[in-house]
Design a protein around this nucleic acid. Structure first.
Lengths: 208, 208
DNA sequence: CCATGGTGATTGAATGTTCAGTAAGCCGGA
DNA sequence: TCCGGCTTACTGAACATTCAATCACCATGG
């Protein structure tokens, strides 16, 4: 424990340092076990300083989600070198890696917990709605590029992206709240076959 | 607010009454806002009596989940009259109704929150793993019946059921944590088309 | 008279939040 | 260069609240 994604490795401002501490505390204790005290313990400065920068715990966590979303946006490799199919696989891989490393597990679990807060808190709901929009827009991009490149069938990209996003969200949730990794791996296989069927059906139909 | 499913309508034992109170409090306040006090307020007897019947809050909630699962099992209509396709649609409808009534919304949201607890609590994880098993077994039943009846293609029922279950879980989650009902309705449409494609492909292939 | 079901007041711990105060930079003027 | 005032970063201790859990006590039927 103590690993962070690269953009959190060596924070330069105090706020970045707080984001890092929040990340670490979330991974270690989950949202349910997250207290200001615990964030303070992963923080080189004092606990009360958190209140100097953020009004309250919720504002801090919302800011954390916003921060992660922004970093995530500026982090997507955008490797247009590969073909559309490879790019699509890469996106799914990023959200649903075949083997969930121990450190990633804590963070994934915490994100599932955080998302659940959206069920009764509008601010979280807005935040995750935006997150979903960004993720889905990315999927739409990849799919439409594939269509223009003549590699994918001329499907409704929005609809396919929404479906993929929903299924991936379900698999992420199940992976950490139920049957374990098997839920994720079988979902990946099923998605492969779905993509084959729906997006690459040209060849399949040609075979028929 | 104040509506309950039929099996909770008029509790006969004190324990059933506690389950009912828990249900009502969960719908009204969500898991995040659920306190023993609030359960007590939806309960005709006193709050301390809860501790007479359950050791602590967690035991009560776990018992509640177990209770809901058992009632749900004994509640499935098993209408074998309809065809396999109709039965499958009915199952999906039950989990993902096209219009989420206000009262159902609170309960769905609470279940999403409750499931998120499984991310850091093994007892909840076991509970929801069992829930998923039961639900998926039901789907497998319907699919296998459809295959035997010659209405569905000879697919891997386990795999298809797992995929459906995951997607439905994702849609339920998104419905209450993000984009609202649109996530659920588009997912339903996509699932329809998936079922057409994967399970009923005989006719489609015949057309080709 | 005691076991079972039930009550209202109380407590103790956890935790978010505040606050008075210190240290450290910054800047314009003498 | 040094000084005074001003602002920002930061701290430790205390405060206020929430909430699960308990306790002493009551009632009623067998």
């Amino acid at each position: 424990m103590g690993e962070t994604p690269p953009f959190l490795a060596d924070p330069e401002t105090t706020r970045e340092s707080i984001m890092r501490a929040t990340y670490l505390a979330l991974c270690e204790h989950g949202y349910a076990g997250l207290t200001i005290q615990r964030i303070g313990e992963s923080f080189e400065k004092s606990k009360s300083l958190l209140y100097h920068h953020y009004d309250d715990k919720d504002e801090l966590l919302l800011a954390f989600l916003q921060f992660m979303l922004e970093e995530h946006e500026s982090w997507v490799p955008e490797s247009t070198d590969d073909g559309p199919r490879e790019r699509l696989d890469a996106v799914i891989d990023a959200m649903l890696p075949p083997e969930l490393a121990a450190e990633h597990h804590g963070f994934t679990a915490a994100m599932v917990e955080l998302r659940a807060q959206a069920a009764h808190d509008e601010r979280y709901r807005d935040q995750f709605a935006e997150h979903d929009r960004v993720f889905q827009a990315h999927l739409v991009d990849v799919i439409e590029d594939g269509i223009e490149a003549g590699q994918f069938r001329d499907v409704d990209a929005e609809a396919v992206a929404a479906f993929l996003g929903t299924t991936v969200a379900g698999a992420m949730t199940r992976r950490v709240t139920g049957g374990g990794d098997r839920a994720a791996t079988t979902t990946r296989e099923a998605l492969e076959s779905y993509v084959d069927r729906v997006l690459l059906a040209d060849e399949t139909e040609a075979e028929a």
